[in-house]
Nucleic acid binder design. Structure first.
Lengths: 103, 103
DNA sequence: TCGTATGTACGAATATATTCGAACAATGGA
DNA sequence: TCCATTGTTCGAATATATTCGTACATACGA
């Protein structure tokens, strides 16, 4: 696969975004990305099989929450802060705030 | 059933709340409740069988998003604005803001 | 007490998601 | 070119959700 699908900002759908965020593993991925910034898939060090993680990366990317950049054999994932905030102002910060409070 | 289960504010779980909000019918219920305030189940006038709606009311109530008050044969549902905002500041307003923008 | 109104509970069918092993693709270095 | 690294895709098993008809529960008025 050469190019990866990323929905445009105006295509972001609220139920889709909320659904993508409603899974513990995916929320954990977002938590790490928020804390550390852009990361390669493997550097996240989440204890789950590769294919399981790949599935969750795809859900996050196709919902528009993350952007995936290909570099060599690696893929670097980052949160689409600006796009999300443009489409759903305050939504992601409210979710992220909860993480930060937990720790 | 005499008493209905409602989770305490400190028991509200982020993934559970996000999941409950990630369904179009449930989001529509919240949209109507936000616009009109407390409503009886039937007054929402959503085009779906009673048992289907009842299921969604239960998901919303058990996730802590709505409160259900029994009065006679009716049940009045309302959004738990304060509890949600205490537990997840800004989350619900961000979701509700999106509704209002849509119209 | 009987009937009506309001809504839940149950159960089964269907739909959708998650998980993960195995095979595959792409890149880059030796 | 061969191999290791990184990650995806496929497919099947399993788990979970949704939908909705039917039966049931409760309250209230006649």
């Amino acid at each position: 696969m050469r190019t990866l699908y990323h929905p445009r900002t105006d295509e972001l759908n609220l139920t889709t975004v909320l659904y993508a965020l409603s899974d513990p593993i995916r929320l954990n991925i977002i938590k790490i990305l928020d804390a550390k910034g852009e990361q390669s898939c493997s550097s996240l060090e989440i204890d789950a099989p590769k294919s399981t993680l790949s599935h969750h990366f795809k859900v996050l990317r196709e919902s528009g929450i993350v952007h995936t950049r290909i570099e060599g054999t690696q893929r670097f994932i980052s949160i689409r802060y600006e796009d999300l905030n443009a489409r759903f102002p305050g939504l992601l910060p409210a979710v992220l705030l909860n993480f930060r409070q937990e720790e």
